[in-house]
């Protein structure tokens, strides 16, 4: 994976930088240049909430080569507490405990590595809130 591709996503992947349409209030992640609803082009930067709930989930058992060491691993669609949604892995969860509506929080993890010699790509996963 060419490093520029992961480097340019750092604000989103590391810091959950998104934007919001001042007219509709909808949050876009990743940030957009045009609001698809209101057609507004002056969206304002926002940082996403770091807690949310699982809207849906699956367990990937046949994984792409970059993820075979981690399979089986859960992937979910998470609705954050500010209403924004994202797709990410659900780390640190037992498959049996996964359920729609479960509370999760964001953690910084390594998402994938480009073979044995390429760059590491870091970013967000969610983990169950148990505390």
């Amino acid at each position: 994976m060419f490093p520029a591709r992961i480097w340019r996503e750092i604000p989103q992947r590391y810091r959950l930088e998104a934007n919001r349409c001042p007219q509709t209030g909808e949050i876009y992640f990743p940030p957009r240049l045009v609001c698809p609803e209101g057609k507004c082009v002056e969206l304002e930067p926002v940082k996403l909430a770091e807690t949310g709930t699982v809207e849906s989930f699956t367990v990937i058992r046949v994984a792409p080569s970059a993820f075979t060491d981690e399979a089986p691993y859960p992937v979910g669609i998470v609705k954050l507490d500010d209403g924004a949604k994202m797709m990410c892995q659900i780390a640190d969860a037992q498959i049996e405990e996964l359920k729609i509506g479960m509370k999760v929080k964001i953690e910084f993890r390594k998402i994938q590595s480009d073979g044995k010699a390429g760059v590491h790509a870091y970013g967000y996963k969610c983990v169950p809130v148990r505390d």
């Binding site: 060491d69 981690e70 892995q89 910084f108 993890r109 390594k110 998402i111 590491h120 870091y122 996963k125």
Partner: peptide, 15 residues
């Protein structure tokens, strides 16, 4: 786990 290393743990400890 495979997705945890010195960098990820440093970020979480720092948070």
């Amino acid at each position: 786990q495979p997705d945890q290393d010195t960098i990820t743990m440093s970020v979480e400890a720092t948070k």
